[in-house]
Amino acid sequence: MIAYIMCFILFLVGLYGVITRRNLVKIAVSLSIMEISTFLFFALIGYIDGGIAPIVDPADPAKTYVDPLPQALILTAIVIGLATTAMLMAVIIRLYRKYGTFDIREIKKLRG
């Protein structure tokens, strides 16, 4: 149970970072932390006590495996997260070239 609480705390840490940080890169890092806490949660819900990794051994197929579906889902989600992070970093770099700073308080042309 404590693992679930820890991963929820990790999510809150990321949320705190997104809300309070002023640096663009730190916001991106906080988003990644939230992302990883979500993946951790998925890995936890597939866990079965005493189960082993779900790779079928041809010699001895009758073992207790953990649930493989959440792991497949995480792999997909990791790829999506990679795309999101790369996109975000590209935008941040472009912003840095335009403004010369990472501070979000100085990048405030749009309002409302």
């Binding site: 999510f11 949320l15 997104v18 663009l24 916001i27 988003l31 939230m34 992302e35 979500t38 949660f41 998925f42 989600a77 999506i80 999101t84 996109m87 975000l88 935008v91 941040i92 472009r94 912003l95 335009k98 403004y99 990048i107 042309k109 749009l110």
Partner: peptide
């Protein structure tokens, strides 16, 4: 890739990312 577009896209991405993780949870 002008200032407005990039800033709007950044805001959109941060909030969109937040939404994605809520959905995933």
């Amino acid at each position: 890739v002008e200032k407005n577009e990039l800033e709007a896209s950044f805001k959109y991405q941060v909030l969109g990312g937040l939404a994605s993780f809520l959905i995933l949870f």
